[in-house]
């Protein structure tokens, strides 16, 4: 994770309008599309890419990440008046770690199988660049409610791209989605084993970035 660079990049494009409704809509568009952390900036994929060979694991990780991002942004924003400038990074790390440990404890206690499947990746959410990037760029200088939604949409934008990676990987590699066998793919399809292995994640993500960027570029040309 490299917080300095993306943070600056994100500040430049962070919505500044105080109007509530349009700000919410803008946060959604920014997080989900214009500034999508994954395919626009290719950030923060480390902690989740490894579990994208199963849709269920990916969904749980994305849920954990989205929740952590939104709540961390909310907390950072609530504390922004009192946090001394010099220790703000430490406080942010502490807050993010707090939510991640909450998720970890909850999974261990109530969903032990999933906790075993995800292994260390839940803990690695702490070092995900997106969360601290949003805290630094937006939450520490904005009121709580917009901060919460900013984090939420950023997390959702991340989740939707990673789910788009996970679905073809599980479908082509195992012939199922969420563990449910799919027609044709579970019977007539010669399974692409490479898709569930690590290289499959690289190829799928690359193709997805290619497609989404090409799509985005076309939209920009038209509107220009």
């Amino acid at each position: 994770m490299m917080s300095a660079d993306p943070a600056r990049e994100m500040t430049a494009s962070a919505p500044k309008g105080p109007k509530k409704e349009s700000a919410l809509g803008r946060a959604a568009i920014e997080g989900l599309w214009n500034n999508n952390p994954v395919f626009r900036q290719v950030l923060g994929i480390c902690s989740t890419l490894a579990v994208t060979n199963l849709v269920l694991n990916t969904a749980v990780m994305c849920l954990a990440l989205t929740g952590t991002t939104a709540l961390s942004c909310l907390t950072v924003s609530l504390l922004r008046e009192w946090t001394p400038h010099r220790v703000r990074m430490m406080v942010q790390t502490l807050i993010i770690a707090f939510y991640v440990i909450l998720v970890d404890i909850a999974l261990k206690a109530y969903w032990p199988d999933m906790s075993r499947n995800l292994g260390p990746y839940v803990g690695l959410i702490i070092t995900n660049c997106i969360i601290m990037g949003r805290c630094e760029a937006f939450a520490r200088s904005n009121p709580p409610v917009p901060s919460f939604f900013d984090g939420l949409f950023c997390g959702l934008g991340y989740s939707f791209v990673l789910l788009l990676v996970a679905v073809p990987r599980e479908l082509l590699g195992m012939g199922s989605i969420l563990g449910i066998p799919m027609p044709y793919f579970s019977t007539g399809w010669d399974k692409w084993i490479i898709m569930v292995m690590p290289p499959g994640a690289f190829f799928t993500l690359a193709c997805l970035i290619w497609a989404l960027r090409a799509f985005q570029a076309r939209g920009e040309e038209e509107s220009a």
């Binding site: 290719v42 499959g200 690289f202 970035i209 290619w210 497609a211 989404l212 960027r213 090409a214 570029a217």
Partner: peptide, 13 residues
């Protein structure tokens, strides 16, 4: 669309 990170991911794969 593949320039930069895209092609890097393919190489990594």
């Amino acid at each position: 669309g593949l320039q930069g990170p895209g092609i890097a991911l393919i190489i990594a794969g």
